[in-house]
Amino acid sequence: MTDVPVPYLVVDRRPETADTVTLRLEPVAEPLADFAPGQFAMVHCFGRGEIPVSVSSVQATGGLAHTIRAVGAVSAGLCEARAGDVLGLRGPYGTGWELERARGRDVVVVAGGIGLAPLRPLILRALAGPAAYGRVNVLIGARTPADLIDHKEIERWPTTYTGVTVDRPDDAWRGDVGLVTGLLDRADFAPADSWAFVCGPEPMIRATARDLADRGLRPDRIRVSLERNMRCATGHCGHCQLGPVLLCRDGPVVAWDRTEALLAVREL
């Protein structure tokens, strides 16, 4: 079936930063199938178009949340949505993080900027079952303290280690300043027995995955979430190709051993 959007009601709109909001959505009638952390929906803004957005929260009730940054016409329209508005959603699409595969091992989550949003449901899931996983580390990089999403929540996460670093501090910032990879020395994990989940701008993903691999993480246990233009999300439009990979179908979450060489090719 060519998927047709399903109406979802905006039940809450929370501004995260100057250009980013989190919309909590509930199905108007029948919900879509359950989303796994890491999967995405095509979110329709009436009269403007559709964009792919990973879920930043999944509720057992069928409700979910999307954290959206206003960078284009559609995302700006979605960011203006108010509680009571109806959006159209298609999905779930793509691969999830597959946190289950890290059972019994240490978990290293590295997020850059809005890349924290797709990782958030994974972090909550890992923290909800502390017995299932080893040490849980969450490393977050942001542009400025004001650009941090979920900042109130981050402090409450009962992780083994949570590190937050910014590129440019304001006068009130007492935390770390520098690249997110700089936090890896402070995290607590056994590289040979860990899984890593990374999302952020592509150069940050490359640097982080390489650093993790250098420390001894198996490249197939480093999962990264990538982004390309997407129109259909069902493998038919051809836009999201990254060489052999169709990111809407084989991604957005892909293993580093499969991606490293692809990301090294310019204009692939």
């Binding site: 250009d19 940054r69 960078v71 850059g112 900027g113 809005i114 990089g141 942001a142 542009r143 650009d147 590129d167 440019r168 520098g178 690249l179 990879t181 700089g182 952020g200 701008p201 592509e202 150069p203 940050m204 640097a207």
Partner: peptide, 16 residues
């Protein structure tokens, strides 16, 4: 290298 990377403002609205 870290300083140069931060110069790019990768987390900016358009990913540098």
């Amino acid at each position: 290298h870290a300083a140069r990377t931060r110069l790019l403002d990768l987390y900016g609205p358009y990913g540098s």
